[in-house]
Each structure stands twice: as C-alpha cells, then as structure tokens.
C-alpha cells in the first residue's frame, strides 16, 4: 500500500442472496486507487462496476475481504463525508431551486449560512451554471440538471468524487461537452475520481486508469494505465495512442465474454 493510495481493496467479495439463489456480484477484487487518479470502471451490465462503487460509498456491504477509503473503513469514510456521489439520474429535489439543492448537503453537514451561499456560488461557477441558481430543476435541460448534481457533489470538501454513469442518459453531443468540462474540473480541483461507464470512448478519453470488468462472477479482467497526456483536447480521440488503448479495452471486454 503506497503512501498516496486513497482506495485500497484486497480480496474483496460480495455475494447477494436473492430468491433465485445467490449472485456473486464481486469476486476477489484487488485494486489500489491513488490520489489524483481518474479511474473508470467499464464492463457489460452485471459485471459489478456499480456495485463496487457502492461498496466504496458504504451503500453495499462486502461479504469478504477488506477495503479502505482514506485509510478508514467505508462507513467511517462516509461518516467523515470523504466523498461526493453522483448518481445515474440527477436526483435533484423538485421542490428546491438549483441553489437550494446544492445547499442540501451543506445544511445537513452544518455549514454556516454565509459559507453555504459562498460555496453554492463557487460550485455553480465551476460547472458553468452561474445564472441558474434561482431556477427549479424541471426548468433546466437534462445536461444542466446533471451538471447541477455534480455541483452538489462538489459543494463540500470531499477529495473523492464517485460517479455512477452520470452521463448515461444524455445524448452524444451533450455528453462530449460534459466530458470535456469534467476533465477541466478534475485538472482544477485535483480530486480523485471513480467513474462508472459502459462507453469505451468515454472511459479512454477521461481516465488515467481503466478497470475492465466482466460478469458472472463480477471480477476485474484487466487494469490499463493510460499513456495519454493529462492535457486532452477532443481531437485526441483520433490519435494512434487513443485507438490502441480503446482496442485493448475492447479485447478485455471480449475476453470476459468468451468465458460465458
């Protein structure tokens, strides 16, 4: 376990008991995520990528093995508010304005009124929603709602950001744009990001480390350290390095499927 490791899993197992028997959602996961990493989890549905993210967030309990987050158990980390979580849907409360939604975690965590207002303004700028604080969620487009939910996850000082297919429901064009913004945001804030996706280009474009997973039982098929530079314009997707990494991800996914 290196000095700057943030998330560290060893022999992590999770077995769900359902009515049709048991499901091995995670099998012998070994993984270390370092500070400042942008890690993508990619794989077909049922490969346990979301489950793993939820284990990190203490929303699921593993049945075997160990995992630490910032050197603590996931529960301690959650209670210390160590991470922000972005769900597949924005999950904004319709009865609160955008600013009100971003204030929600701040209210719960007991920030002072002035501090709340200051942070709301900051993160709204960060996701380029500066003038939309007084709007209600349903008055915004899907992409803007998702940006607001990212702002909500950023509003308190968690240095880990966990994102579960945050752009899955959006169209390609909006998605490209948000990917670019997310990279810029990551460069500025230096957070550690865990990102679940099922899009190969998205994973390759964003990540410093790509974790390829395969289903039944959910396990890690391949871990790829990206050779791409930190500075990534959209055009990088046509470069040779990019296509090589994408091909390797594809191979990893295919190998997982051949086992079926």
């Amino acid at each position: 376990m290196s000095e700057n490791s943030v998330i560290h899993a060893e022999k992590l197992n999770l077995v769900f008991q359902t009515n049709d028997g048991s499901v091995h959602a995670l099998k012998d996961i070994d993984l270390t995520i370092n500070k400042g990493d942008f890690v993508s989890f990619i794989g077909p549905s049922g490969c346990g990528k979301t489950t793993f993210l939820r284990v990190i967030a203490d929303l699921e309990q593993p049945t075997g093995g160990t995992i630490t987050v910032n050197g603590m158990t996931p529960q301690q980390a959650r209670e210390a508010r160590a991470y922000g979580y972005v769900f597949q849907a924005s999950g904004l409360y319709p009865w609160r304005t955008i600013a009100g939604n971003i204030k929600l975690p701040l209210e719960i965590m007991g920030y002072s009124k002035e501090e709340q207002d200051k942070r709301v303004e900051q993160v709204l700028e960060l996701v380029e929603l500066g003038s939309f604080g007084k709007k209600y969620p349903w008055q915004l487009s899907g992409g803007m709602q998702q940006r607001a939910s990212i702002a909500r996850a950023l509003s308190f000082d968690a240095d880990i950001l966990l994102m579960d297919e945050p752009f899955g429901a959006l169209d390609e064009i909006v998605r490209d744009h948000l990917n670019e913004q997310l990279l810029a945001l990551w460069a500025r804030t230096e957070k550690t990001i865990g990102f679940v996706t099922h899009s190969i280009p998205e994973a390759v474009y964003l990540s410093t480390k790509i974790v390829v997973m395969s289903p039944r039982p959910g396990r890690i098929a391949d871990v790829i350290e990206s050779p791409l530079p930190k500075e990534r314009p959209l055009e990088i997707r046509d470069s040779k390095e990019f296509l090589e990494v994408a091909a390797r991800v594809r191979d990893g996914l295919r190998a997982g499927h051949l086992d079926d």
Binding site: A57, D58, L59, R78, E79, R81, Y83, G84, Y85, F87, Q88, A89, G91, Y93, W95, L104, P105, E107, I108, M109
Partner: peptide, 24 residues
C-alpha cells in the same frame, strides 16, 4: 436513489425526514 444520496451525506433520521421524506 434519493435515500442513498441522504446516506452518502450520512444524514440522520430527522434530517432525512425533514429534508427529503416529508416534502416528498
């Protein structure tokens, strides 16, 4: 999802009742 969100904030019972479940 909304209840999970409250959990990630480690909100207590009364906070999630007042801020989420009663308005909903």
């Amino acid at each position: 999802m909304q209840r999970d969100l409250m959990k990630t904030y480690s909100a207590n019972y009364w906070q999630s009742l007042l801020k989420l479940r009663l308005p909903a």
